Computed example of a mutant assay.
Amino acid sequence: MAINTYALPVIRYPTGIIKWTAEAPKETNIATRKLLNMHGALYPKCGTARLYRDRKYGGKGLKSVHQTVKEEEQSIKVYAASIATSDKLLSEFQSATLTMELPSDDEETDWHMKPFRGAYHRQISKVGDLYQTCMWLTKGNLTTNTESLIMAAQEQVLPTRQLQPKICHTRDDLRCRLCKDAPETIQHIINGCKQLGKSAYTEWHNHVAGVVYRSLCDEYGLNKPQHW
Rank of each mutant, 00 (worst) to 15 (best):
A182G: 00
T185F: 03
Q156M: 11
P225W: 01
G197T: 02
G197S: 06
P183K: 00
L196T: 01
S215N: 12
L222Y: 14
T185I: 06
Q156C: 14
V211D: 09
I189F: 02
S199E: 05
E184R: 04
T160G: 15
P183T: 01
W228P: 06
C193E: 04
I190P: 02
A209G: 00
G221K: 07
I190G: 01
Y213D: 07
L158A: 04
W228K: 08
L163W: 15
Q156A: 15
W228L: 12
A153Y: 10
G210M: 04
R161P: 13
L196G: 03
W204N: 08
T202E: 12
S215E: 10
L158K: 06
Q226M: 04
T160Q: 15
Y213C: 03
H207W: 09
K224H: 13
C217F: 07
P183H: 02
H205P: 00
V157D: 04
H169I: 09
C179P: 05
I167D: 09
P165V: 15
L174R: 10
G197C: 04
W228R: 13
A200Q: 09
S199A: 05
V212K: 11
C179E: 04
R171Y: 13
T202Y: 01
H205N: 11
L216T: 07
H227M: 11
I189E: 02
Y220C: 08
Q156S: 15
G221T: 11
V157K: 06
W204F: 13
K198N: 14
Q195R: 08
C179K: 02
C168A: 15
V208R: 10
H169P: 02
P225D: 10
N191F: 12
R161S: 15
C176E: 01
V157T: 12
G192S: 04
E203G: 00
L222S: 13
A153G: 14
D218R: 14
R214F: 04
A152L: 02
Q164P: 06
C168H: 14
A182L: 00
C179L: 03
Q187A: 12
L222W: 15
P165T: 13
H227E: 14
Q187C: 00
A200H: 07
P225K: 10
H205I: 06
S199L: 06
Q226S: 05
K194Q: 13
Q187I: 05
D181E: 12
S215Y: 10
Y201W: 09
D172R: 12
Q154C: 12
G197A: 11
K180N: 06
L178D: 00
V212H: 07
N223H: 03
V212P: 01
M151I: 09
I189Q: 01
L196K: 07
S215L: 11
Y213H: 12
Y220A: 08
N206L: 10
R177K: 03
E219Q: 13
V208W: 03
W228Q: 08
K224V: 07
T185H: 03
Q156W: 06
Q195D: 09
Q187G: 02
Y220V: 11
A153D: 11
Q226R: 09
V212F: 07
R177G: 00
L174S: 05
K194H: 11
D172K: 13
V211A: 11
Q195K: 13
K180Q: 07
L216E: 13
